[in-house]
């Protein structure tokens, strides 16, 4: 009985490509052939390894709706050779996929509680599947708040969707930018500053945080100040990753392997290590 090889990518096709921002693209791809077709086949917070054949492989979080199992959605910023090659794929092109890998946002554990989603920059992408599920199962949760910060109004990811969510009466959506330009009339400043103004009950709030590491450190401090328990805060870490299955050693963060123990962590498990520089 041949054992499956976790390093072997499956070949799938691009279904659709959409430009989000000047260097950010969303790819909709076929799910891996061994994934369930008619049931959720990944958990919000998980990621895939995507291969541009002949170029390389990178970890990319799911950014789509977990209820839509017929397509896997990934939002990619073109920064290096592999991510650039991936963002140049068109509908019908092939790519390699391994996954899903990694831990998930604790959405079941958050039922009955207020949920505070804090995202910075492209960190909104790994949180979007969680937002879809929160909204799809809105009655199971208390107050739902989304705080999103980005550099400038031109860098706002998923802008139309944010506007749509903002029109709902059962979600509080706040967007802030570091640098206001033109006709921006919204918040200006860093996203942790929005936490003090948000309406949630710290004693029964679950916080989901994803963004640049410095943003997450300050968010963590603001959440602590607000009185949210360390064990109710989850954050998604990012490290260089080559294998995604705990065998290559690249994604170590302190005693953990991000691919195996994360990328979504309960913050009390990371708290001793987050302040250590260059860990």
């Amino acid at each position: 009985m041949p054992m499956s090889d976790p390093m072997l990518p499956q070949v799938v096709r691009v279904l659709r490509r959409r430009r989000e921002l000047p260097e950010v693209w969303t790819l909709e791809i076929e799910p891996a052939s061994d994934a369930a077709a008619d049931a959720p086949n990944f958990e919000p917070g998980q990621f895939n390894m995507l291969t541009a054949f002949g170029v390389g492989e990178v970890p990319i979080s799911y950014s789509g709706d977990p209820q839509r199992s017929q397509r896997w959605v990934h939002t990619i910023r073109a920064v290096g050779a592999v991510s650039t090659a991936l963002t140049r794929l068109r509908a019908g092109d092939v790519l390699g996929v391994r996954g899903p890998f990694g831990s998930a946002w604790p959405l079941a554990a958050a039922e009955g509680r207020d949920v505070l989603v804090v995202a910075g920059g492209l960190g909104l992408a790994p949180l979007r599947p969680a937002i879809y599920r929160l909204l799809a199962q809105r009655r199971r949760y208390g107050r739902v708040t989304l705080l999103y910060g980005t550099r400038s109004p031109d860098d706002i990811l998923f802008r139309r969707e944010l506007e749509r969510w903002r029109r709902r009466l059962d979600v509080d959506v706040q967007v802030t930018v570091d640098h206001a330009v033109g006709d921006w009339h919204g918040h200006v400043g860093v996203v942790p500053a929005l936490i003090a103004r948000a309406d949630f009950d710290p004693a029964r709030t679950s916080a989901l945080v994803c963004g640049p590491e410095v943003m997450m450190r300050f968010t963590l401090a603001a959440l602590r100040t607000a009185g949210v328990a360390e064990t109710a805060i989850h954050l998604s870490m990012e490290r260089n990753m080559k294998c995604a299955v705990g065998l290559c050693g690249h994604c170590q963060f302190g005693p953990t392997l991000v691919c195996r123990d994360g990328a979504v962590y309960r913050s009390d498990l990371l708290a001793p290590y987050l302040p250590i520089r260059e860990l």
Binding site: F53, G54, G56, E57, C243, L247, G249, H250
Partner: peptide
């Protein structure tokens, strides 16, 4: 045990390989 991977391809991208 740490390892990395390198992908390579021929000039026409007909054949590619991943090496650890």
């Amino acid at each position: 045990f740490c390892s990395s991977v390198e992908d390579s391809s021929d000039l026409a991208s007909e054949e590619t390989a991943r090496e650890r």
